[in-house]
Every structure is written in C-alpha cells, then in structure tokens.
Nucleic acid binder design. Structure first.
Lengths: 208, 208
DNA sequence: CCCTTTTTAGCATGGCCGTGCTAATTTAAG
DNA sequence: CTTAAATTAGCACGGCCATGCTAAAAAGGG
C-alpha cells in the first residue's frame, strides 16, 4: 500500500451526488429523454469529461440516479412506518397512517418534483431494461408498506370483518399512485387539497 | 373547379390512418422517444418522404396521433355512457357501470396496448406543449364520465347520504388511472383479475 | 398523347447524441 | 522538486435525427 502521490481534492461520492442532482433537475424540467451527458454536465457546471469520469456510461448514470431516488423514498418510508408500528391503538395510528401516505403524495413543491422525476423514470423503465429492477423495487416497496399498514389495522380490529387485505392493498396502492400521477400530469386539477380529501375519505371508508 | 388531371389513387385519410397505426406500434414497442419519422416510416413500410407528404412535421404527426387516440377512447365512452343512462334502476346500472369502467382498464391485450400508448403520450405531454390540449381533454373526459355516473347514482339514491360527489369522482378517477398505470408498468403484478376485483370492491364500497 | 396533380423517393444540411481516446491540470505524498 | 494518481478538459468519430429541397413516378381527365 504505497501510493506516492494521492490527491483527495474532493469527495468523489459528493461529486457523484452533485451530478445526480443536476440530472434530476434536467429530468424535472425536460424529461428523461433530455438527460444527455451534455445537458447534465452543463446543468452541473462541469465539463462532459468530468461527468464521464464518475460514470462510465450514460446508462450507468441513469441507473445510479434511480437508485438514489429509491433510497430517498425508502428512508422516508422507514421513518414513517416505524412511528406507525410503535403506536398500538388504532386511534393513535390513524393520523400517522395519513401522514405516512401523505408523505408519498406530492403535497409540497419538493415532493412534487420528486414525483415528477419518479414518474419519468418508472415510465422510462418500461423500455429501458437497466432501469427495471429499481422500478420494480419501488413498485413492490409501496405495496409492502401499504400491505403492512392494512394487516396491522386488521390485527387491531380497525377494519370491518371479511375485508380482503390483499385487494385493499392493491386498491390503496393504486389510489396513491393514481393521485400522484394526476398531480404530476395535471397539477392544476389535482391540488394538494383534493389529494388530502380523497385520501382521508378513503381511510374513513376502509374503517367502515 | 376545373382540375384537368386528378389521381385519386388512394384515400389520403386511410394513408394517414395507416401511418398513425404504425406510429402506435412503435410507441407501444419502444416508447414515444423512438417514434421518429424514420422509424415510423419503416414500420409502415413507406419511404420517409411519403410519411412527410401526409404530415408536415414530426410534431404534427404526434399531435394527430394523440387526437386519434382521443377519438377511440371517446367512442367507447359514449357508447357505454348511453347504455347506463338508458337504465333507470340502480340495480340495472351497477353491471353497466362496471362494464364501462372496465372498458377503461387494460383488461385484454388490445386495451393493454392502448393503455401503454396512452401513458406514453400523456407523460410525454408534460414536456411537449403541443400535446397538452389532447392530454387535458383525456384527463377531463374521464372525470366527466365518472362524475356523471356518480351524480346519476346519487340521484337514484344509490349512494349513502352525505357523500361528496366531487371527492368521490376524483377518488374513482384516480383509482382507475392508478390501476391502468400499474398494469402498464408492472403487468405481471397488476393482472386483469386484480383490477376487476379492486374495481368491484370499490363500487361495493361506494354503494355503502 | 398531354398535362396537372398526387404521391413517392431521395439527397444534403446542420444538430445532438454516446463514447473511445488523448492530453492537460491539479493534488499531495515521497 | 519529483512523481504517480485523480481529475478535468476536449477532440473526433459514427450514428440518428428533423427538415428544406428537388425530382422521379404514377394517375386519370382533357
């Protein structure tokens, strides 16, 4: 282990992260199809060669970026989910559930941007094999969270008898996805107020 | 009106339609970003010059194609909606409503393809201004249909008292959109059986 | 046969793309 | 200062793109 000259000028992880942030801005503004190395490099204020030093190919950059998006979502999910399972009465849980699912909806500007990027990537994943694993994990992750919440509610007797938890999981997950998609594509029509009202109504409905 | 020589070799409308069909196949297979004039012409078995004779620009082709998609959806909606409003008891209406909304879900191969194309176009519309009018009409069209169905149901007393029809409209529309998006992006997980079960469950829920 | 129009075909230009490649520059340890 | 490694920068190639433009081919009324 004898390196005779090692410049550690900058944390490479931070650089990669900065590039990914620039890519997210481009995707948010102009879509995945405009996220070329050139456009991303310009957005990041770097030369194209610099970007390519951290990512061997365009595809690798996209894959890495989508993983980063995965991480962000997962972190928010984990935090909210732990709070829910810490509460033991269904009365305590209800507002926490609403908060957690609200976390998945584009209710503020930051999460709206995130939803835009999410939709851009998962739709792109349909025709880009390298993105499919991450897209699938995001899909399953939502169902996992929703499924756990509903199973927990059923265990606490917060759901009416005879409710099929698997069907309700798909229903609630599809509803959340649908609201997010609508908010991304028609933000003027699907406002945060509408989304909150719909979600709240659905949870009331589930409680019987 | 004296044209001294008029070759009417082929119905230009039919040609335009054939080009649009080819474009739909390309979009279905590889996404909107691959629907270049070259790829579409090849898929249609025409020279690129021929395609350009019927569509002055690439953008015009995309706009025209999305309008055609609009028309197809609207035709199916109108037929189903008329049948519903012809029925006057809520017991008669229920299966018709389920059929109409089922018409919007990708339950068979043809409608799956149509849903794939629909999602590709409406997401593309986010960053392509020329597609936005059609995308907005599709969005509003669904809400119009769902809103009329629910308002009719309320009039017939098929909904519980105190139900907010506007919120329920958004909820059902978002659910249908969400199911369609999931079926397009993760067809292995969101099967026709799952979609039917979810839709049926939701309609039961609405009836109280 | 002629002539006008539709239709098909193709060329050329300028632009953006990813990527292979080389080289300049910077950094800090020896 | 020297030097190896990390980083930044940039060139060049081949490919695909939309589009302006020209022109060949087909078709049927006169």
């Amino acid at each position: 282990m004898l390196k005779r000259g090692v410049p550690r000028i900058v944390d490479p992880e931070a650089r990669r992260s900065a590039v990914v942030d620039a890519l997210f801005r481009v995707v948010r503004r102009d879509g995945v199809e405009q996220a070329s190395l050139r456009n991303v490099a310009e957005e990041a204020g770097l030369a194209i060669g610099s970007v390519r030093h951290y990512f061997d190919s365009h595809d690798e950059l996209l894959v890495f970026a989508l993983r980063e998006l995965e991480d962000r979502v997962e972190v928010r999910m984990r935090a909210g989910a732990e709070r829910i399972f810490a509460a033991d009465s269904s009365a305590e849980r209800r507002p926490l559930v609403e908060a957690l699912l609200g976390e998945l909806l584009p209710l503020d500007a930051d999460r709206h941007d995130e939803a835009v990027i999410w939709l851009a990537f998962v739709t792109a994943a349909r025709t880009r094999p390298s993105l499919r694993p991450s897209a699938l994990r995001l899909h399953e992750g939502l169902r996992m969270v929703v499924g756990r919440i509903l199973a927990g509610a059923a265990r606490l007797g917060a759901l009416p008898e005879g409710v099929a938890v698997d069907v309700e999981t798909e229903r609630l997950a599809a509803l959340v996805d649908g609201l997010a998609v609508n908010a991304v594509l028609q933000p003027d029509r699907t406002t945060p107020e509408v989304m909150v009202a719909v979600l709240s109504r659905h949870l009331d409905d589930l409680a019987g």
